[in-house]
């Protein structure tokens, strides 16, 4: 088994996919770092101060002004109200929600990329893991060895899991190092508020507590990694089912993008919460952001994702061991 995994790993590294992913991440991080830098700069110019309290107060005032507008959907109003209360809570307790520095940037970057960007990166690897063997014709060479088919697939799957953990690590490392050049490397121990719960559109602060930023980051990474594994497994299944890599990728891409769109508009279609793609933003539960559909909790999202994950895994293994290869 270990040899099979080594073999798969070797193939993966030879294809230089991880390098490409690393470059993509680096470019995006640089882009966002610049955008963030510009934003900070603009704020300073507008307020004439770098004082985060004044800036936060201004954000609160802006939200209050937007709430005053009558042309606004109820969902959006509710979300804004929750954000407003949260920010007021930060301000009242004298905690900076965006402590400047590389760790905060890393947190922001990981949280925002958990539902689209990281799944896309995972897809790059996952979606041709099996299908490329078909298109290259090397599948026959692989299957004629005296090894059980499920072992071959398992070794591929484990390679995928290893690659995912590499990708997550690269996202973390690159966003930390590159943004630190501009924002500095301080803030690993900055306090973060977690434990906001939302019940019926209201923000409940009774469970709120402080966590150090590095702990919060570790939790974020754990959740993001879980999401990446689920998406990776689905793409892996497609790669088994569909022999053309491009078609498999297209299906997965469509699902992911529709998830991003759906999250913004499904609040009235309740059964949409059983789709995997609206459940990808797990980090929102830690931050107390209102979920896209009322009634969704961390537990329900995890169960839905687990179900999809298990189903995809079963399908891939059954199909791969049964199918005819010619």
């Amino acid at each position: 088994m270990a040899n099979l995994i080594q073999n798969e790993m070797m193939k993966l590294l030879a294809r230089k996919r991880l390098l490409v992913i690393g470059i993509i991440i680096a470019v995006l991080v640089l882009l966002f770092t610049y955008a963030q830098y510009k934003q900070v700069e603009e704020q300073r110019e507008k307020l004439g101060t770098t004082d985060w309290r004044a800036a936060l107060q201004q954000q609160i005032i802006d939200i209050q002004n937007r709430l005053g507008s009558s042309r606004m959907s109820d969902d959006w109003r509710e979300q804004l109200q929750i954000t407003l209360k949260q920010q007021q809570y930060y301000l009242d307790h004298n905690i900076n929600p965006t402590e400047p520095g590389a760790p905060s940037f890393m947190r922001m970057f990981v949280e925002n990329s958990s539902d689209l960007f990281i799944p896309l990166l995972v897809m790059i690897i996952a979606s041709d893991l099996v299908s490329s063997e078909h298109s290259l014709g090397s599948i026959k060479l692989l299957l004629t060895r005296p090894v059980k088919r499920w072992k071959i697939l398992l070794s591929k799957y484990i390679t995928l899991l290893l690659a995912i953990s590499m990708i997550i690590a690269m996202v973390g490392l690159l966003s930390y190092i590159l943004s630190g050049i501009v924002f500095g490397y301080k803030g690993m121990n900055a306090p973060i508020i977690t434990g906001f719960t939302i019940s019926e559109g209201n923000l409940d602060t009774s469970e709120v507590r402080l966590v150090e930023q590095w702990k919060f980051l570790l939790m974020d990474f754990g959740l993001v990694c879980f999401v990446a594994v689920v998406v990776g497994t689905l793409a892996f299944m497609l790669s088994v089912l569909i022999r053309s890599t491009a078609a498999g990728m297209g299906v997965m891409l469509a699902a992911l993008i529709s998830g991003a769109i759906l999250s913004n508009m499904v609040s009235s279609w309740e059964s949409a919460k059983y789709l995997f793609m609206v459940n990808l933003k797990l980090t929102n539960y830690l931050n107390g952001v209102a979920p896209p559909i009322e009634g969704m909790t961390l537990f329900s999202s995890l169960s839905v994702l687990l179900f999809w994950w298990a189903a995809a895994l079963v399908v891939s293994f059954v199909i791969f061991t049964k199918e005819d290869v010619y």
Partner: peptide, 19 residues
Amino acid sequence: VTSLSVLLGILWMAGFGWA
């Protein structure tokens, strides 16, 4: 690379469990 990613994988799993 393999052993490094195994270690990282364990780290992320710990983070997930903790979360």
